[in-house]
C-alpha cells in the first residue's frame, strides 16, 4: 500500500510537471524525482517481501493495509513539505525576496 501510494503520487507529479514543461518555475521536477526514487526503493522492498510471503503478500490484513496507507500518505506529505522548503529557499519566481523587500521598505 505504501508503494502504491508513492507510485500514484509520482505519476500525478509527473503529469503536473509535463503540463508545465519546459518551464520549471514551481520545481515540480524535484518532487517527481523524489517520489520516483522512493517508489523504486519501495518496489525492491516489495519484491523481497513477496519472495518471503509469496501469495500472502497480496492478501494483507485490513489493519495492516490501513496502517500502510496511512504511512504512505504521511510519506507523501513529508515529500510535499521538503519540496515546499526547497521551493521557498530557491525562490525561482523571486516572490519571497520581493515580499521580504516590500516589508523592509514599508
Amino acid at each position: 500500500m505504501t508503494l502504491l501510494t508513492a507510485v500514484f503520487a509520482a505519476v500525478i507529479c509527473t503529469v503536473i510537471w509535463y503540463k508545465g514543461a519546459p518551464k520549471s518555475e514551481m520545481k515540480v521536477g524535484v518532487l517527481c524525482l523524489m517520489y520516483w526514487g522512493a517508489s523504486l526503493m519501495w518496489l525492491v522492498d516489495a519484491v523481497f517481501e513477496y519472495a518471503e510471503l509469496h501469495e500472502k503478500y497480496f492478501t494483507p490484513a485490513p489493519a495492516d493495509m490501513l496502517n500502510d496507507f496511512y504511512l504512505g500518505l504521511s510519506a507523501v506529505a513529508l515529500g510535499l513539505v521538503i519540496w515546499l522548503v526547497i521551493l521557498l529557499v530557491k525562490d525561482p519566481k523571486g516572490a519571497v525576496k520581493a515580499a521580504l523587500f516590500g516589508k523592509k521598505t514599508d
Binding site: 505504501t2 508513492a6 521536477g29 524535484v30 524525482l33 523524489m34 517520489y35 520516483w36 526514487g37 522512493a38 517508489s39 523504486l40 526503493m41 519501495w42 504511512l71 504521511s74 510519506a75 513529508l78 515529500g79 521538503i82
Partner: peptide, 20 residues
C-alpha cells in the same frame, strides 16, 4: 542532479518509514 534527487528523496522517505 537527477540521480541525487532520486537517491536523497527516496532515502529520506524510507528513513521516515523506518522511524514509523
Amino acid at each position: 542532479g537527477w540521480l541525487n534527487k532520486m537517491l536523497w528523496g527516496g532515502s529520506v522517505l524510507l528513513a521516515f518509514e523506518h522511524v514509523w
